[in-house]
């Protein structure tokens, strides 16, 4: 093999190596891009039981479909070891699609410490999530509760009339997370933070 030929080969090797290294970096980026992609897919396909994160107003003139009734079951899940009580005021609601429903959860901080929680909703069956719209929800904001304090957490929602016919029961479940530590670590004031995620946006 001549010297020139060898140089050419080395050049070709370097060029291909550079391309492959670029592919490696791109795939590392793709791994991270899966995170927003996942949310976009869940939103677009209405899977995974994720509901709207900001308040939605009901469009004017939405008709109530009296011919259908959907049982809405309300649940709350407190992680084990957390001294906090939360339960729905009413366990099961009979709801006509299109009807605006007002209800609430009752929460009590059983611990000796002031606690800030974040409730994360999930709708089951997941396919119903995009048809379940919250107009007002305590889950839009962080909920601070002093030691021993109890409160009523309001919830206003409606179900879109175009919800698939196959759905007769819908479960709304809240999981409550203690985020006191992570909020305190942040430098900004709690008051600002409790509203930061919850600026109500008009629905499209």
């Amino acid at each position: 093999m001549g010297i020139g030929e060898k140089k050419d080969k080395q050049k070709a090797n370097k060029a291909l190596t550079a391309k492959l290294l670029f592919a490696v970096v791109a795939m590392f980026g793709f791994g991270y891009a899966l995170v927003p992609l996942y949310d976009v897919m869940c939103d677009a396909l209405g899977i995974n039981g994720k509901t709207n994160k900001v308040a939605i107003d009901q469009p004017h003139g939405m008709a109530i479909d009296l011919s259908r009734t959907i049982d809405v079951e309300l649940m709350a899940h407190i992680p084990s070891g957390m001294l906090w009580q939360m339960k729905p005021k009413v366990r099961t609601l009979q709801v006509h699609p299109g009807q605006v429903i007002q209800t609430a959860y009752l929460a009590k901080n059983l611990s000796q410490q002031d606690t800030i929680v974040q409730a994360v909703p999930s709708v089951s069956p997941g396919i119903a999530a995009t048809h379940f719209n919250k107009m007002e929800c305590f889950c839009f904001t962080r909920q601070p509760l002093k030691a021993g304090e109890s409160t009523e957490l309001g919830l206003v929602f409606y179900i879109e009339p175009d919800i698939p016919d196959s759905i007769h029961t819908l479960t709304l479940s809240y999981t409550v997370f203690d985020i006191t530590d992570s909020v305190e670590q942040e430098p900004k004031s709690v008051a600002m933070l409790t509203n930061s995620t919850a600026t109500p946006r008009r629905s499209e």
């Binding site: 795939m27 991270y32 995170v35 999981t175």
Partner: peptide, 30 residues
């Protein structure tokens, strides 16, 4: 390998930052 090993590296890095640096890739509360 080139297509998926970097994704694994990303996944373990997310676990690392979730556990030690307060990110919430896999934490529902965050």
């Amino acid at each position: 390998l080139i297509a998926v090993m970097p994704v694994l590296a990303g996944a373990v890095t997310m676990v690392l930052t979730d556990k030690y640096f307060g990110t919430s890739f896999f934490d529902a509360a965050g």
